[in-house]
Amino acid sequence: MPEAIQHRFDPYSSNGGSILAIAGKDFAVVAGDTRQSEGYSIQSRYQKKVFPLTSKAILAVNGFAADGNNFVKRVKQRLEWYTHAHNKEMPIKSIARLIQTMLYARRMFPYYVYNVLAGIEEDDGTGAVYSFDPVGSYERETCRAAGAAQSLLQPFLDNQIYFRNHTPAPGQPPFDPSTHPLSTVLSILVDSFSSATERHIEVGDFLEGYVILSPGRTSDDLIGEGVKGVLPEGMTVEEQDPEDLDVQSAVAGKGCRVFLVRKELKRD
């Protein structure tokens, strides 16, 4: 008879990785690394944690992967029901509130997941980032980092996106975080993850995310000729067909364009 191992089943685990989202005036960027790990073992070098929900809202989940995947599945289901009931996509503001309600519903057995939701606001077309704690406390922000390397990424964003501890030259207007051009945001994104990969063992392999452009906005700074030298080195950009986004494309919001961005990170 094997000795009775009296240990309680722990229904949680932590699967590493990090996610990051930045909102611009007329765009939003959300990305994460694709490494999934448990302890010191890399389970997979390519496992998604950023998921398109609608044609203008994308959710990144980080923490316990099983909870994350199932949470995304449930959110998508609720959004589909909404679409069937109202024949339109749910606005990002409402998705954010939905997520808070769904997280808080599990207050006593939480989803061990940090959510970051990014997209385009319905009413004014501005870029939006909403971040959540595991039990649903949420806030709209300009940028947010979450996950294993949050402590490495967030202060860097404070400095580079929010201009903390920067003083404008005499006579110059105050800094405004929402005026960053897309190319700057993508550079900061890539530099953030390269830094996190360098110093955090749970971050690496690939950077994958999405850029969502507000209706009518030009994509000249993202695809086509003339983006060489503007885009970070080694980054690939692919425009997404709403059909491939696994969203309710029949009622997809008009005008928002979604781009998949990828870059290799170090594998060690």
Partner: peptide
């Protein structure tokens, strides 16, 4: 735990250290 992942090579338990 319901944890899932896909990869071109997979190994469970001991093998995740020795065989993977």
């Amino acid at each position: 735990l319901g944890t899932t992942y896909q990869a071109p090579t997979l190994a469970t338990g001991f093998a995740s250290h020795f065989a993977q």
